[in-house]
Write a protein that binds this DNA or RNA. Sequence first.
DNA 1: GCCGAAAAAGTTACCGCTAACGCAAAACAG
DNA 2: CTGTTTTGCGTTAGCGGTAACTTTTTCGGC
Lengths: 347, 347
Amino acid sequence: MPRRRRVGTGAPTIAEVAARAGVSTQTVSRAIRSRSRISVETRERVLNLVREMGYLPNRNAQSLASTKSNLVGLITHALANIGPTQTLVQLEEAAKARGFNVIVTDIDENPHSIRAAFDQLCAYRVLGIQVNFPLRIDFGVFRDLGRRVPVVLHDVRVGPEVASVVFRHAKGAQLLTEHLLGLGHRRLAYLGGPKTWIAEHERRQSWLRVLRRARLKPGPVFHGDWGAATAYAQAKELLRRHRGAFSAVVAGSDLMAVGLLRALNEAGIAVPAEVSVGSFGDFPFAGLLTPSLTTVRQDFAQVGRLGFACLLSALENPGSPLQQLDLEPALQIRESTAPAADRGSEG
Amino acid sequence: MPRRRRVGTGAPTIAEVAARAGVSTQTVSRAIRSRSRISVETRERVLNLVREMGYLPNRNAQSLASTKSNLVGLITHALANIGPTQTLVQLEEAAKARGFNVIVTDIDENPHSIRAAFDQLCAYRVLGIQVNFPLRIDFGVFRDLGRRVPVVLHDVRVGPEVASVVFRHAKGAQLLTEHLLGLGHRRLAYLGGPKTWIAEHERRQSWLRVLRRARLKPGPVFHGDWGAATAYAQAKELLRRHRGAFSAVVAGSDLMAVGLLRALNEAGIAVPAEVSVGSFGDFPFAGLLTPSLTTVRQDFAQVGRLGFACLLSALENPGSPLQQLDLEPALQIRESTAPAADRGSEG
DNA sequence: GCCGAAAAAGTTACCGCTAACGCAAAACAG
DNA sequence: CTGTTTTGCGTTAGCGGTAACTTTTTCGGC
């Protein structure tokens, strides 16, 4: 006695196409995916039928049968920020150009959620996973995960066993700090991003290093969350406690610079006449603020493009060493920095 | 003669878990997915083994066998902009909370690519598709597509046969324009987004309507691309050709306002003393620019949340009418608008 | 005209999981 | 104590494709 037939989704299957074409399913499969072992005429005939019937190969079935998918995973953090978004957009574009799709998951700062996200994505048998989680956590987890599936780390480098694309944050901070010193500033304040971020840590260390080399005492240090609002609040605090004690401020992002500029403006402090401001990002609006921002360009879009290229290279040349790419920062000098008015009151 | 066994991915399968637990695969399946038809003890025992072995159900196999996936598709346009990003982030969060994953694809303005993206996503047998393509195209395509799979449209309404979440752009533009008129402005310029966008069209129509009602002649109209750079360029053109002919400008986005403010500043025109500026968006930095922006808040995050809720509702109550949600705009009045200095030179 | 190789197509056995049904044992109703 | 549900699990037959192998056809070379 035949069981009740399961209802399908209504979409035509490969078997239906094959039946109408008068060939086997295998031939339809070949027509769709390859150009070998099938005659040009058969191929044409089948493909016409595919179009006519609106047949779409079921990716789940394809993935199951071939034990691999067309998916690339992206695990990202703080996706609402401009940088990660740029990265995603470019990654998706690069992936699509090669016939892959991207499945995204935005996670919070809890390192445990990395593992959870990883499991989620692995369950889809993704080809590889891009990890944009640039926080200062125990990197061991990345080595672990890299063993299960090809991984490309963004802004984290754990060694030759995992591919990575990183910004040279220290270099960027050095460029900016030296620029300020070159303008005669001797008392620099610092209004960075969250301490938990690698970018923040590396920049601050670099800032301290440059000051130490110049035999200058570092000025007050504050931290925000990359956004304008907290930067504004922190900048007010900076001014309340250290007004007059600095002639330049290094801000963690262009948006933080916006908040900082606001606070300086409200305090009646002219930029750059009295205080210079530099930041990181160089997002499109940075050059159009008043004053326009001196800022270290970070090409987040490039992270997406190169990240995908790394993955592709790892998949196509399984033996070869995994790529370790560096992105060079570039200082854009604009109006928000100017020679110091108060030369050498200390240092 | 046995064929060569196919190599697996190395990950344990449900059969291996079942074998070690001494139960059938069906029992393992039940332990993982449901709490019925299985005893508590068996369930515990199986789940422990699942954890111990690091078993991850193959989503492709699950989707194939159950003819539905855990995926929600998002087709979006100009994802690099702040709004669409907010939407994505919230959508992903809402989806994750219910055990779904999001697969994203960012498409260009060619309406044809909607169909292509749709096919791509349907091939994964996604549960539903969110379409964030708020351009003025022939909406027939959406009705078509909505028949194949549940669809939620963002910022587009085609009728009761497709769910949608839309901004009340006309209302927003009306609020802003009336605010400016209330301040005594009689000559308003307009620096909007791309004409191809629905938001742009509706706002401009609304702006014209309000002016007509007030028996005022509309001022010069320019268009950018939502970004600061083109807004700056267009604003320069506006000033070159119409300087002095307007006392207020409606800008299409907060970022466009940034470019506009820059151009006004370079031209030596004080805001808001000489010219008032209003915009749309109310992104976090809007209140921290100098001057802070009077702007119409658009809650893009809400689009993501509600869009997912619409989809869920459509999936869970197949019979009931599809949701048609409106998002109310809210005018944030700040420093960039002020009473007109030149009352009544015309109109 | 025959032979062997290559090309074109078909067959079979899965990929890893779930729906649907089967069936004994336990729980429950009367 | 008997008949009916319910519970707990197993069995079977796919879901819709692809890999690997086999068979048939074509075709060049001698």
